[in-house]
Amino acid sequence: MALQPLPILPIEVLRQAALSRLRAGVAAANAPDADPSALKTLYIPRHRFEKLGPERAPLLHVVAKTDGGEGLSHELPLVASVGTLHINILLASGRAGAVDLDVKAAQLTQAVCLLLLEDQTFLEQFAYVEALRVSMEDGIARGDGGEFDVVLVQIELVMAEGQTQFEPRLPPNDFAQVDMTTDIGPVVGSDPPQDHTVRLRFEPEE
């Protein structure tokens, strides 16, 4: 049974939404008679701590990186929430292969971005995209088949989630009434001078 996301963490809701759409996209790419797609060989682990070697690449996982934002009010807590997803992709090729990993990385990155950013049901879950950044690193990894050349792609998707307002909870009502006294100042023309006092009484509802 999936854990329910916390209301204060909308980025976790978006992470799960992104993953579900990416899994559906991979399944569609592997359907009979499907058009050629860079998503066809992509593997999405059950969670990002699943133990996998480079021979299983290309791999993808989605991380909820940041959430929250600036306060917009000095009274009730009002937060302009912005969340960041990191979509990490690993591509690998054995030394004997002649695969152009840079081209494959670009094709797969484009397919992932288009799958999410052209999905109206995904876009409806937040206000707008604040930033989209793609970075790539290359290196070497060891696997069961020896050494692999690898390219690691990170897609950084920053989304404005809208404004969140938190309503304060009142303490338990264990009093019958409250007297409030405010001194405004002397009454003009009074003899002798007198202070004008305003008394307010609050009686809580039962």
Score class of each variant (00 low, 15 high):
126 F>R: 05
105 A>K: 03
115 L>A: 09
130 E>L: 00
108 L>C: 06
124 E>C: 06
135 S>E: 14
116 L>C: 01
107 Q>V: 01
106 A>W: 04
136 M>K: 14
109 T>D: 01
120 Q>V: 12
130 E>D: 07
120 Q>D: 15
109 T>K: 05
121 T>N: 13
118 E>I: 04
106 A>T: 10
127 A>Q: 15
110 Q>S: 10
123 L>V: 01
133 R>Y: 06
129 V>Q: 11
121 T>M: 10
113 C>P: 03
137 E>S: 14
110 Q>L: 07
131 A>V: 02
112 V>G: 07
139 G>I: 08
129 V>K: 02
111 A>V: 03
133 R>W: 00
135 S>V: 12
134 V>H: 07
120 Q>Y: 07
113 C>S: 11
131 A>T: 03
126 F>V: 09
137 E>P: 06
136 M>R: 15
113 C>T: 13
132 L>I: 06
113 C>Q: 13
138 D>L: 07
122 F>R: 08
134 V>I: 15
106 A>E: 13
119 D>N: 14
128 Y>A: 11
112 V>N: 06
121 T>G: 07
129 V>F: 02
113 C>M: 13
113 C>R: 11
132 L>F: 04
112 V>R: 02
124 E>Y: 04
129 V>I: 12
131 A>M: 08
126 F>S: 07
127 A>M: 10
128 Y>S: 12
105 A>W: 01
121 T>S: 15
117 L>V: 08
124 E>I: 00
122 F>K: 08
139 G>M: 06
123 L>D: 01
133 R>S: 13
115 L>D: 03
137 E>L: 10
111 A>E: 01
131 A>D: 15
109 T>P: 04
124 E>W: 00
122 F>Y: 13
114 L>H: 09
125 Q>G: 08
108 L>Q: 02
128 Y>F: 14
138 D>K: 14
125 Q>N: 05
117 L>N: 12
137 E>Y: 03
119 D>A: 13
